[in-house]
Simulated assay, not measured.
Amino acid sequence: MIWYTALVLAVGAERVAELAVARRTARWSFARGAVEHGRGHYPVMVALHTALLLGCLAEVRLADRPFTPPLGWTMLAAVVAAQALRWWCIRTLGPRWNTRVLVVPGLPLVEGGPYRLLRHPNYVAVVAEGVALPLVHGAWITALVFTLLNAALLTVRVRCENRALGVAGPGTTAAGAMPPGLNP
């Protein structure tokens, strides 16, 4: 359990790093006239992603979930892959990345990096991590509850981003808006 606690805390520290990046990039965006969209769902997103971390630790401890090596190691690899994808998104968007939906008028959509392959690659990372992190140590209830609640939240979030960016059709890439950082 100690190593799993360390893993969950490391993911939490990664979230804090994302928030620091988001603060810096928000200053850049607002200095260029950014408009924020979707403020109403942002606190829900922060609460849900915080609850994921707490739920992982609580369920493993309270329900005495075992570590099952084949599942645990596979899910750990998925967590690492999700982090790599998330930071690829952050690097690709550069100063345009944020945990909030900030759109700088006049900037074109980003179509490089993972955005050349997927419309919302950061959300792929969020979904993968939301399933994998709890399942590293058998916290299946946390994985299930987070996945269901996150699906509802992502429906709102993706619609918000697409509206904010004026993205209409399947051939376009919604990258100018920022993926969730507590992605927290």
Rank of each mutant, 00 (worst) to 15 (best):
A34D: 09
A31R: 14
A81Q: 01
P105K: 11
G38T: 11
A58P: 00
G113A: 09
R32M: 06
E111M: 04
C89Q: 03
L52I: 09
Y115S: 01
R91F: 12
V8A: 04
I90V: 15
R32S: 06
P69I: 01
D64V: 07
L118R: 04
T50K: 00
A22H: 04
A10W: 02
T50I: 05
A82C: 12
A34G: 05
L85W: 07
A51T: 06
R32L: 14
L62M: 08
E18S: 01
W73N: 06
P114Q: 04
G55N: 03
G33I: 10
R100E: 10
R15Y: 06
G38D: 11
C89V: 13
G106E: 10
A77C: 14
P108T: 11
V46Q: 05
L102K: 03
G112D: 15
V11P: 00
R86E: 05
R15P: 00
H41L: 10
A58T: 05
R86F: 07
P69D: 10
R91G: 15
G38S: 13
G94H: 12
R116G: 15
E59L: 06
L53E: 03
V60E: 05
A78T: 13
D64H: 13
Q83D: 10
C89D: 02
E36S: 13
A13K: 00
L48A: 00
V79G: 02
V46P: 04
A10K: 01
L85R: 04
R65H: 09
G94L: 09
P105T: 07
A22S: 15
A47Q: 00
G113I: 10
A17L: 12
R32C: 02
A82I: 08
H37S: 14
G106N: 11
G40V: 11
R23G: 09
L52V: 07
G12K: 02
A20H: 06
H120F: 00
V8Q: 04
A31Q: 13
W73L: 15
T74C: 12
R15V: 08
H41R: 09
W73T: 12
A63W: 09
L19C: 00
I90D: 00
R119F: 07
A81M: 08
L7I: 06
V110K: 03
T50E: 01
R91E: 13
D64I: 01
A51G: 10
R24M: 03
V101I: 15
R24A: 12
W88N: 08
A10S: 08
A13V: 10
S29F: 00
E111S: 14
